[in-house]
């Protein structure tokens, strides 16, 4: 049985880990980007960032003071046994957020949008966000937290089928150039691209693509995987590096997530995670054990609903 208390404790731990420890896949990715960087200023920036990751781990202090908008992604296995219901989990997550904000400490970024008032603990109306998904044949709960800055590097556009890959490239360039100047989007970063769905799904897919997949991970559709590599190369050929200085370090990896969409449209979103891509995951098993990792394993075949029940549905059969 997974208790609310163990959910609170594990969530507090991942808040801390995310803020302080750079994920290894991202560190390897940034080192690889740095090894190809010939711009002196851009190279200096990346070298300083790598030094900063090490300092954060040594001092147990956040890599970046802008600890973003801390939030959660929760995946619940069908066989997971937990107490307190779903609202019990949500209360535990809110408590962990407030406690971590005071103890790590995280910057209390969350304010009311109009009155700019705050509770100094990153908890408020509709905050932190908690996204839920489910997994068959599993007796665990995965809780992932992501700390992502919120002001720059994200954009949305309704393209049309006729715009095709040219339109996708054009909008990606527009976004990377406009937010890459002066380094406002804190590049080099993992870029997430959402294609399809409805407008809100499109934003969500792009965000999850940026934050919940590991560097080096490819979309299971080989043609989409190819497009990921092509767009990554395009981003790194802009001639812009860290902080918008002359260089080649813009994209550490690029992930695309897709959703079936309106026949007339091709909605697209672009999200840049930052130089301190902050994510951490805890898996709580029904026997009470907890394991920590940096790979959210969010995009399972079930999560993408790849082919789930397609045969049956296409024959018009009702679910058994």
């Amino acid at each position: 049985m997974i208790s609310n208390q163990s959910i609170e404790t594990a969530s507090y731990e991942i808040m801390k880990k995310a803020a302080i420890d750079i994920p290894e896949d991202y560190l390897a990715g940034i080192k690889s980007v740095a090894s190809r960087e010939s711009g002196e200023l851009s190279g200096f920036v990346i070298k300083t960032m790598i030094n900063n990751y090490q300092t954060a781990t040594e001092d147990r202090r956040p890599m970046c003071a802008d600890t973003g908008l801390p939030r959660y992604y929760v995946k619940v296995g069908d066989q997971a046994a937990f107490e307190g219901g779903f609202t019990g989990i949500e209360r535990a997550l809110r408590s962990a957020t407030a406690r971590a904000t005071r103890d790590v400490p995280l910057r209390p970024n969350r304010v009311h949008p109009l009155w700019r008032t705050e509770h100094n603990n990153n908890v408020g109306i509709n905050a932190p966000e908690i996204e839920w998904t489910f997994e068959p044949d599993a007796d665990w709960i995965d809780i992932t937290t992501v700390h992502k800055g919120g002001l720059f590097g994200t954009d949305y556009r309704m393209l049309f089928p006729g715009d095709g890959v040219d339109g996708i490239k054009r909008f990606l360039l527009d976004t990377l150039i406009s937010f890459g100047k002066r380094g406002l989007c804190c590049q080099p970063a993992i870029i997430g691209v959402g294609l399809g769905g409805s407008k809100d799904t499109c934003m969500q897919l792009g965000k999850q693509a940026a934050c919940l997949r590991m560097v080096g991970n490819r979309n299971p559709d080989p043609k989409i995987a190819q497009l990921e590599l092509e767009l990554m190369e395009l981003g790194n050929s802009i001639g812009m590096g860290a902080m918008g200085f002359v260089g080649s370090s813009m994209v550490v990896d690029l992930h695309i997530e897709v959703g079936h969409t309106h026949t007339g449209g091709l909605p697209m979103s672009v999200h840049t995670f930052c130089l301190s891509s902050r994510r951490a995951t805890a898996r709580l098993h029904s026997d009470g054990s907890v394991a920590y990792r940096t790979d959210p394993k969010w995009f399972t075949p079930y999560h993408r609903r790849e082919t789930i029940d397609w045969d049956q549905l296409s024959r018009g059969e009702a679910h058994a």
Binding site: M49, N51, T55, D59, P62, M63, C64, D66, C186, L275
Partner: peptide, 13 residues
């Protein structure tokens, strides 16, 4: 300008 924008730990130290 700060560097890379995320050198929070170095500056914190």
């Amino acid at each position: 300008t700060t560097v890379g924008y995320g050198t929070g730990a170095l500056l914190g130290r």
